[in-house]
Amino acid sequence: MDLLQYIDGIYEAAVVPEKWPDVLGAMSREVSGDGAVLFTFARADMSWTTSSDLRATFIEFLRDGWAAINPRPVRLSAANHPGFVRDSDFFTAEELDSDPVYAFYRSRGIGWAVGTMLDTPSGDSIVFSFERAFAKGPVPLDVVHGFDLIRPHLARGALLAARIGLEQARSMANTLLALGLPGGVLDRRGRLVASNALLDALVPLTLQDRRHRLVLSDPIADGVFEAAIGSQAGQGRGGRSIPIAAAIGRPAMIVHLLPISGVANDVFSVGRSLLVVTPIDRAAVPNAEVIQGLFDLTPAEAKVARSIGEARSVEDIAVAQGLSRETVRAQLKAVMAKTGVSRQQELISLLAGRQLPFG
């Protein structure tokens, strides 16, 4: 058993995240294991990757909600051990036999593991877990010692990957600056991890960079914003556009929250969402295509929104578009939900770039 031969692979994976599954798989096979998992988490949100032989099982593990009650991370954190430990070290045999999560593991052929937890300066936790078939028995002590020898390299590789993720976030913010757009990158908890000068200029009148997360100064808009962050943390799909009411010295604005997905959202990616702010400073009602893009509306909803912005009644819109009043009302209800307003006059004011009568 020689896990030190994988040092170069660990640092390569830190730079090229697509390499992690191969490195994890090779290390697992070196110790007669049956797959490995690498995940980072903060609160309920998690990013992960696995060796190929364990991927299907881990997807099922997440899909069926086992991760929410998994006792391993809790015990690992409580142990606070600067090395690798086996589940047989901090669970009794009775606990392992009665725990439903371990029942799931065993039903899939695994059930023993050796793992370690690392903490990052950002507050996230990183877990490396190497699985072993239940039929093979507990992980031998010499395997634990082998992983302890390579643990410093796993820790440095993980921290290097996190640092690279931060630099990528800064690059995204600077790209938006080059396009003339106030923008930044939020982490999985909604904290601002990178921003450009144009976005910084909006603090604190429009945005407030607080320790727990970025906050919109408009409390109504911030409620919608907080819900959108929570949705993306829960692996929600698609972006969200949130209107901010005008105030003294500030025009009405639209905050666009866009998920960073695919390769850009690897296991060590610092950024989870891209934030772009678009001021609205006009007296004319925008056309339907612009409204559709601003608020993620369907074409039909955008037409209704524009008509409402022109102060037309539901009855007039129904006649003009050949629809029933019920259909128009349903579309208007969807528009108001997506724009975060509760009254037609608020929608008219929003589309005209005037202050919304929230108070």
Rank of each mutant, 00 (worst) to 15 (best):
D2R: 10
D2M: 07
E12K: 08
P17L: 00
A26G: 03
T40G: 01
R43E: 08
D45Q: 13
T50G: 05
S51T: 04
S51D: 09
L54E: 10
D64F: 14
F84P: 10
L96T: 15
S98D: 04
D99S: 02
Y102V: 04
A103W: 11
G109E: 09
I110S: 10
T116Y: 08
M117E: 02
P121Y: 13
D124P: 11
V127E: 00
S129L: 10
S129E: 01
I150D: 10
A158S: 03
L176W: 05
G184Q: 03
R188H: 07
P204K: 03
D209G: 01
R213Y: 03
G223S: 04
V224C: 06
I229C: 01
G239T: 03
P243M: 04
A245R: 14
A247W: 13
I248P: 15
I248G: 14
V255S: 04
H256A: 11
P259H: 05
S261F: 10
S273T: 02
L297T: 03
L297P: 08
A302W: 04
A302P: 09
K303L: 09
E310P: 06
A311I: 09
R312K: 08
S313H: 02
V314A: 13
E315N: 08
D316T: 15
E326A: 15
T327C: 06
L332F: 03
A334F: 12
A337G: 11
A337H: 11
S342E: 11
